[in-house]
Structure formats: structure tokens, C-alpha cells
Amino acid sequence: MVLGDSPVARGLRAVLGTGGGASGDGTDAAPRDDLLGADAVVVVGQTGDFAAVPTRRVAEQRALAAEQVRSAVAAAARAGVEHVVGISSAMVEGAAPDRQLIDDPDDPDEVHDAHGTGGPTTVADSADGDGAAAAPDSGAAGDLLAFEAALLAAAADHGLARVTVLRPAVLVGPDVDTLLTRHFEAPRILTVRGVRRDWQLVHLDDLGAAVAVAVERRLTGVLTVGAVRDGLPDVLGPDEVVEVSGLRAVDLPAAVAFATAERLHRLGVLPAPASDLACTVYPWTVTSRRLVAAGWSPGWSSRDCLEVLVEQTSGRNGVGGRRVARRDAAALGAAGAAVALLGTAAVWRQARGRR
């Protein structure tokens, strides 16, 4: 049973051929009777619905999400469901210029605290011109860490011993809309000078297959999910990303990129904080080790996924996750802004004023 009515929840139901569904952001509980007889309940934290991300304060937003998770787990426990699967993202493990491969913990009961491995961002550090650094958990990674914590706490409260957290790489699929997929709606791909950013993606079909393997094999703890080839992470280098996407790259110093992004977020121009920028410009490749060992074999390569993503984003224009009209994006580019994520507030206001 997959709870929620988000793009990821709907996609998982289609892949798994299961029931479920509810209004809300993807974590709402279904009625108890709907869960009776289910082998597992899937609670979706990474909803793939960027446009629906609430604008309320972070603390309020996370408190509401935690309550929805607790409600979902409580409903599962009342229905006698023994296995709960949470859909998160590997971005919670953090991204950094020298990031090593993200492996699954050897202890199946261990769920990494991303703050213990550098936090959801190791931005160097994402300080603005005033020297103030962005909170490391202020963005999407922090939201997902809070989701995971709520899921584990609720499962413990209700005595559910079988809990799995799936952390996929960059997720693509029908209607999946995230800050990372919107990175490819920009007129340019932002890169940080001196850093090689390889891209690993995973299709929603393969995430659904991972859920099935985790439930059938009774895998618990953290499982990373990303495209693999011959048992190893399948990644696209910068040149291949440029080739497939048809986009040129714009290369900026890290200090300029993060400081400008943080300033524009504080002005309300960009919807995501600078801390989220790390996951678009720094690597965070996963091994998928335990899933592969259990027999999971993805059907989509990273290149296949990127081709799907490019097709889906064709005709859309975005700056730092905010979709804009084509002429606005053109105005930003003509002004010499780093239109993948950056610019100046003045240029943005001018562009909006000409609409």
C-alpha cells in the first residue's frame, strides 16, 4: 500500500500495482480498513512535487509533516502491517567537492545521521557577502532528515521492528518535479570551478522495483538506490551531461555561486536556500550495494534517465528552481547573469517589470 497523492506516490502505485491514495502531500494516512492485509505500507517523503512545497516557516512545515508521518505509521500499526518503507533521498548524506561514494551501512538497523557525515551540505561554506552561512538543514535535505526521524520515531512508538528507508539518487519519472530536475530547465548548467560533478540518476520504475525487493527480501535499515552498471554506480560525466541535455555550462567560483544564491534566497527571488545548491554542483553518488546483492537490477541507465528528463523539461525555463517566462530567462542571460541559478536582484526585477 502506497500512501499519498504525490507524483512519486502515484508512480510507485503504477509500478507496484498496489492500492493506496490520499489527499495531501504524500504522507497522509489511509483509512485503517484500506490497509488491512497489506504486506507493507510505503510512506513518501520525497514527493516529487516541487511546486507544492509549502511556503510556511521551516519549523511549522516540518512539524506538520511529522504529524502526517505519525498518523500514517499509526494507521499501519492498527491494521497489523509489519513493514513500513519510507521514501527519502540520498541528498541527506551531503554533497561536497571530494564526496566519496555513499554506501549502505553494514548494520541494517542503522540509519545514518547526515549531520554526522558533514550534514546535508558541506558548502564551503555557503556564506553570503555579510559572512553569514546558510543553515545546513534549512532546505530539502533537512526536510527529508526530519521526515526520516519522524518515521523512525513513530515506528518505535508503535513497536514496528521492520522499517526500511530508501534513499534514491536524482529521481526522474512521469510528473516528478524537484529542485534537481529543474536544474535542467535553466538556459545553462551551473558548475563550480575546479569541481567535477558526475551525475547519477534513477528512474521511478526502478525505485518501485527497489521497494518490491526490500519488502520481498525483508530488507531493513537504509538502502541507497541509483543507476548501476555491472554492479557499480552508473554516472554521467560533465561532457556527457552537456551532450545529452544540449545545454552549455556556466562555470563560477564556489564563493560567488553560494553567496549570490543565499542573497537571492533571502530576498525571495529564489525558492530554495543556498544549502540546496550543493546537491546540484557537487557529487553524491550511491552504491546501491545491498539492493544489488539482494537481486535488484535497474532497467534504466543514468543516460536513459537524463534523456527522459530532458524530454520532460523541454520548453520550460527556470532560474534556481523558479519557473519563468521565456523572455525573462532571455533577459537574464543577455544581462550576463549565471542564469542556471544566479543573477542579481536588480536584473530579476527588471526582467519581471518587462513582462
Rank of each mutant, 00 (worst) to 15 (best):
V8Y: 07
S297F: 00
D205Q: 14
P174M: 08
W296C: 01
D34F: 09
A325K: 06
D205T: 13
G24T: 12
G118V: 08
A209M: 05
V215M: 11
H115I: 02
R289M: 02
A79T: 07
G295I: 10
G268Y: 01
A51R: 15
D143F: 11
S126R: 09
R57D: 15
H112P: 13
G295V: 11
R217A: 14
Q350R: 15
R10H: 11
L144C: 03
T313D: 04
A169R: 06
G246M: 04
A77T: 09
R162F: 01
G129T: 11
A114P: 15
S302N: 07
E148M: 08
A40G: 08
A133D: 06
E82Y: 00
V228A: 14
D175T: 12
V163D: 00
G94A: 04
L341D: 03
M91G: 11
A149N: 12
D234C: 09
A133K: 04
A209T: 11
Q100R: 15
D34Y: 06
V58H: 13
S71P: 00
G343F: 01
A133I: 11
G295W: 10
L223S: 04
L232A: 15
V269N: 00
Q312H: 13
W284M: 04
S23L: 15
V53W: 11
V319W: 13
L166K: 08
A325E: 15
L277Y: 01
R289G: 11
G268Q: 03
T260W: 01
R57C: 04
L151P: 08
G142D: 01
